[in-house]
Design a protein around this nucleic acid. Structure first.
Lengths: 152, 152
DNA sequence: GCGTTATGGATAATGATTATCCTGAAAGAA
DNA sequence: TTCTTTCAGGATAATCATTATCCATAACGC
């Protein structure tokens, strides 16, 4: 229910590479590999996760390269960043627009539940605060099913 | 509309001191001062903000003391932490239960809009993901009214 | 192929937060 | 009030994800 198949990874990869090229970014082998990892990932990998996966094909890749590529992708709105102050940030390259997440506070599992859209609520907030709302973040924290089992 | 008066700061201070005492924490002058700053704050101060305010009455207070006190308050659920990976975390001592925020991405202003409660949505997410939901975070990002003016 | 210039790699720097360690103060008991 | 125990404060070092820096090199348009 949680990490069901989303859109086709190959299609998403094509989309990302096309957008980067179109905006004048070079498509290096390392970059392509990072895009592929993001497109194929069902979870929400951290930079270190991505780097580890990358080392299988490109054993000399630097962590800095991953950070730089992620920054590009953020600038181009091709990846959604989930910030944490006490943990490494996590990234969603499949669905780069804001959407709710369920986050396990024990094991760090993150999944995308289906929920009604928040546009109405965002409009309400804009009306009441005078803000020009451009993005949002909705996280639910708790224990994932696996971690509940371990409680006995 | 955004930073309207909430509950009575003095009453909130009484509440916090009572809870800390009840749980066996000592009430030192520094701690009381931090509680007062949190209770009276209408914004969402960072640790550094709190420390700066504290120095007026206790010029030798260490930053570490503020961090330690905040940790206590988090453990006792008397303060709500808003985490940011690229900025200092911000704290709400007035309303320590999760509630939506509007956050200015330019100046960092944070305010508490009135919105319908999210309990139903949380229940829906719990049903669909199997998570045992214990907390949530709903942030809306955008430009506050002041920062919109500066755009011309 | 060539030349321009963005990118990759290695590593140092940054900065919020946490850990450590010791001294001193808070609170209860006598 | 004084004593005792233990928690809290202050100073500072350590941590760790993320950024910045710098140079050699690879990508891509011509």
């Amino acid at each position: 229910m949680c990490d069901e198949a989303k859109r086709d990874p190959a299609e998403r990869l094509r989309q990302m590479t096309a957008r980067l090229k179109e905006r004048g970014h070079r498509l290096t082998p390392q970059r392509l590999a990072i895009l592929r990892i993001l497109a194929e990932s069902r979870g929400h990998p951290s930079v270190e996760d991505i780097h580890k996966a990358l080392l299988k094909d490109f054993p000399t890749t630097s962590l800095a390269t991953v950070y730089k590529t992620i920054t590009r992708l953020k600038d181009e709105n091709e990846v959604l960043e989930l910030e944490f102050s006490d943990l490494a940030n996590r990234y969603d390259g499949n669905t780069p627009t804001p959407h709710p997440h369920a986050i396990c506070t024990r094991c760090g599992a993150i999944c995308d539940p289906d929920t009604p859209p928040l546009e109405e609520l965002a409009k309400l907030v804009a009306d009441r605060t005078g803000f020009r709302i451009t993005s949002h973040r909705l996280d639910f924290y708790g224990l994932c099913p696996k971690c509940q089992e371990q409680d006995g």
